[in-house]
Each structure stands twice: as structure tokens, then as C-alpha cells.
Amino acid sequence: MPPDTSIDLLQGTLDLLILKTLSWGPTHGYGVARWIQQITGDVLRIEEGSLYPALHRLDKRGWIDSEWGLSENNRRAKYYRLTTRGRQQLRTETSTWGVFVDAVSKVLTSTEQPSWSNR
């Protein structure tokens, strides 16, 4: 299966967020959603449902692993765990993200005028 190369910003970002969240330790989908809300102050307002296709895709790619377990209040829940390959992927994507953010902010914060600017 060739890797999904669509650079859908939201999806790629969501993947990165999930990987980062799981790097703290295994949790279920609801845990991932809760953590992201808590850290970001719910700025991103992610539709919680959209986490699940992302989780399953990452599972399929072998970046995360899943296992059934019991939740804090004794419910059966599917727990996700970052794999070694997932950890590598997280490192790569984090640095890519850094480059991306740098590049975008360079453009946004540039004070230099382009030659065709007539302002």
C-alpha cells in the first residue's frame, strides 16, 4: 500500500497530533480527543468523529498499535499505543512541521517588498 501522500493540512496535522498525544502513553480514542482539547484549550474544535478514521489509518500503517482493555470506569475500550515506527514517524513529522511553520511565518512576517509591488 503506498503511503497516503495527500498533504491535506488538517489530516496531516491531525495525524501528527495523535502521534504526539500517544507518545505520552497508550490511551483510547476518547482519551486522545480529551488531551488535545485540554492542551489547546479547545481552540482547534476538532470533530471528535474524525479522529477515528485517522486512528484506524495510522494503525494500518503500523505507526500505532491497538489492544482492547478496560477504561478508568471499567468499560471495555480500545487502547492505542505508539509503535517504534510510529515514534520515528513522529520525529520526522515534527521536524517537517517545524520547517513548515518556519517557512509560513517567514512569508507572513516578511517586511521586504516584492519587486512587482507598487505600494
Binding site: 500500500m1 470533530e47 471528535e48 468523529g49 474524525s50 477515528y52 478514521p53 484506524h56 489509518r57 494503525d59 494500518k60
Partner: peptide, 23 residues
């Protein structure tokens, strides 16, 4: 509201899973 379109999510996950099972 918070979860979004349940049916679509389910379909997407199902598609990913069943393809994976086949592979």
C-alpha cells in the same frame, strides 16, 4: 454535535479496516 457525522465515520473506518484485513 461534538462527534460529527457518525454514519460517515463508521463507513470510513470500516473501509480502512476491511481493506486492511484483505491485505
Amino acid at each position: 454535535r461534538r462527534f460529527g457525522d457518525l454514519t460517515r465515520v463508521r463507513e470510513q473506518c470500516d473501509a480502512i479496516d476491511s481493506q486492511w484485513n484483505r491485505e
